[in-house]
Write a protein that binds this DNA or RNA. Structure first.
Lengths: 200, 200
DNA sequence: TTAATTGTTTGTCGATCGACAAATAATAGA
DNA sequence: TCTATTATTTGTCGATCGACAAACAATTAA
């Protein structure tokens, strides 16, 4: 491949961009913020990533492909539905309260406020949140099919309930509520599901 | 009182500002947005309200003094602690999903993303959210004192749980989850408290 | 060695941001 | 009527926004 080789680590720069966007959000992170965070001139950022929006989308993709993808993992890997939901919520707390990274969920809080011209990224993240709610409901339905939950379980209500919890944890973590308190709240949140679980 | 009388309705203008900030948030609502929403020139806005930040703070105060103050009302007016919490959550759903006003909670979502220079308003809203969590815990403690909840009730965990629920409802409402679904989720969320309630 | 390709540096672009100065208009009290 | 006070109109300010053009540098393939 011809051409002058890049002098900075693109992956490292992308990670720094992710952290910046995660902390402040899409619109509140200016190009000059990114210049400072990535340590390279703005023209280099444009040459390497296209535009601020392109960089943001790539940063969110990095997030969801990494730690941000905890939910699908928990829902898929745990055999028991209650264990799956509890692990999802606990992993959310652990990630959202990590001391050496921004608090809260990037997908929830990186584009809450944005002007009309950037509604696109807002809708994009909204769709991802919607998908996660669907994943939770799918997992609950599997729990019913597996005989772990009663056949009369209101899957939709439970699913919305846990989606609310997941997103609420992000808000509370962002407000600085300590990890231990949120873990205690998760234990409380498991009550409805344990009640719907078939005892064995 | 001397001086030329104001030619526009200040209260009406403030209400429009509240709606604009509620919908888009503090930083994402530009002065030109406000000029369009209030229907008056920017110099008149500055003359009447001081600055954009002053206007925002007054708008939030209007919100919390009005519909946004539902939580304290519910917690104070209901004699039974479970009824109080349930009404708070249900009122939250009703307000956050009102079709003719912005979705979600203004205190939760009007300053999620903001740049460093406006951290002041972010912290201000955060403090208000913290106060609300405290109100919930205080109400739960009163429930224990009133003998409505068992003496071994983990008030802190329950309080954090309902704070998570309250703020999560705002996120979900903002994402367009219908009122009925969120009300169903609230019914699920009442399970832990009803379990802690002393049967009579 | 040359040509093609890609990265970097430097500087700047037009648009928009929040904010206000100055001039003018309308009221109340002396 | 005159003065003090407040509101409105008009225009514009410096700062910052995201974005890129042009010139130059470094690499590979021919």
């Amino acid at each position: 491949m011809a051409g002058r080789p890049r002098e900075f680590d693109r992956d490292q720069a992308l990670k720094q961009a992710m952290l910046a966007f995660w902390r402040r959000g899409y619109e509140s992170t200016s190009m000059s913020d990114l210049v400072a965070a990535l340590g390279i001139a703005s023209a280099r950022i444009y040459a390497a990533f296209g535009s601020k929006e392109d960089l943001f989308r790539e940063a969110v993709a990095l997030y969801t492909a990494g730690d941000g993808g905890f939910a699908d993992l928990a829902l898929r890997q745990e055999e028991d539905v209650a264990a799956a939901i509890e692990r999802m919520l606990r992993d959310a707390v652990m990630l959202y309260t990590q001391p050496d990274s921004p608090q809260g969920c990037m997908v929830v809080s990186a584009a809450t406020n944005c002007s009309e011209q950037n509604d696109g990224v807002l809708e994009w993240l909204r769709a991802q949140r919607h998908e996660r709610t669907q994943s939770v409901m799918d997992r609950l339905r599997r729990g019913v099919a597996d005989g772990q939950l009663g056949p009369d379980t209101d899957v939709d209500a439970l699913g919305d309930f846990y989606a609310v919890q997941l997103h609420g944890i992000s808000v509370q973590a962002r407000d600085g509520v300590p990890r231990e308190r949120l873990l205690a709240a998760v234990r409380v949140a498991m009550t409805p599901l344990l009640q719907a679980a078939i005892k064995r």
